[in-house]
Amino acid sequence: MSNAAAEPIETSLPRARIDWIPLILVPVLAIATLPLVGNVSAWVTLTVAGLAMGMMIFLMASGLTLVFGLMDIINFGHGVFISLGAYATLLVLGPLAGWASADSIGLNLALLVLCIAAAMGLTAVVGVVFERVIVRPVYGNHLKQILVTMGGLIVAEQAIHAIWGASPIPVPVPETLRGAFVIGDIVMERYRVVAIGIGLLVFFAMQVLLNRTRIGLLIRAGVENPEMVEALGYRIRRLFVSVFVAGSALAGLGGVMWAFYRQTLTAGMGMEVMVLVFIVIIIGGLGSVGGCFVGSVLVALMANYVGFLAPKLALVSNILVMALVLIWRPQGLFPVARR
């Protein structure tokens, strides 16, 4: 074992670059709208509402971007897991209705945690079946993936109708999470603050998982080159299933947060939000969790600001953001190497 190779000719030390520009977009957007809104308290309220919505979109979209990046699967059925997660709250709210109406932050938060656990558990189990029955037969064929997962979505929606009925079901926000924090003229809804906290928690947990653990290394490597991961001796299929199940569970978590935010359950609520979900994962860069996070916040803030400043443009603001980002960076804000 000798020192055999001469020092290579390339002696310049390449610097690790952090791509700051997309990260700066969010604060730049927020600060730029302050003079347009013209009122600090209204601006803070809009910003908090936008951040909360952004976190919920991130929760719903993060699983899909991983599934897309790692497995190259276009899962139009992802909305099923959002709807199922939302409906899973009924499994907890039914027997524990008293916890929702109790004036106790402890019981209210415990109820929220139980709802999240039920939703993630249910969607994880359904995710295993969905991957095995619907997704696995169409690996490698995008057209079939779109058709089959769309079919799965329709079947699942009808199953929700059959189980829980077709009528919208009201969902009460736990007592102490209703209302708002009022600081001077600034009004921040409590539930939105909680949503921001949960969104940030999940984002940082995902960052730790992806960057500090071996399974995270495998996922990041698999997103880039799944064949080479197999050639290194890892069974990528198992990783695919694990990520698909985790992505489904994350969508279930997003579904719970979205259900309490809307305070109404409908079987189509997952499908309705899928346009936003696809926009943010395209903006972020397919397969990039960080990009999905920035994209979610960017889209949600833009929707809130535009909704306040020019309500007629609110509907097109998301498409406009996506178009501008793709003109600037066709692979999204944080392109993943393979794509």
């Binding site: 290394l217 990041r220 490597a221 997103v223 880039e224 080159n225 064949e227 080479m228 993943v336 190497a337």
Partner: peptide
């Protein structure tokens, strides 16, 4: 031949 190193890692 293409080395297939993981560029993001």
């Amino acid at each position: 031949e293409a080395m297939a190193i993981f560029s993001d890692l």
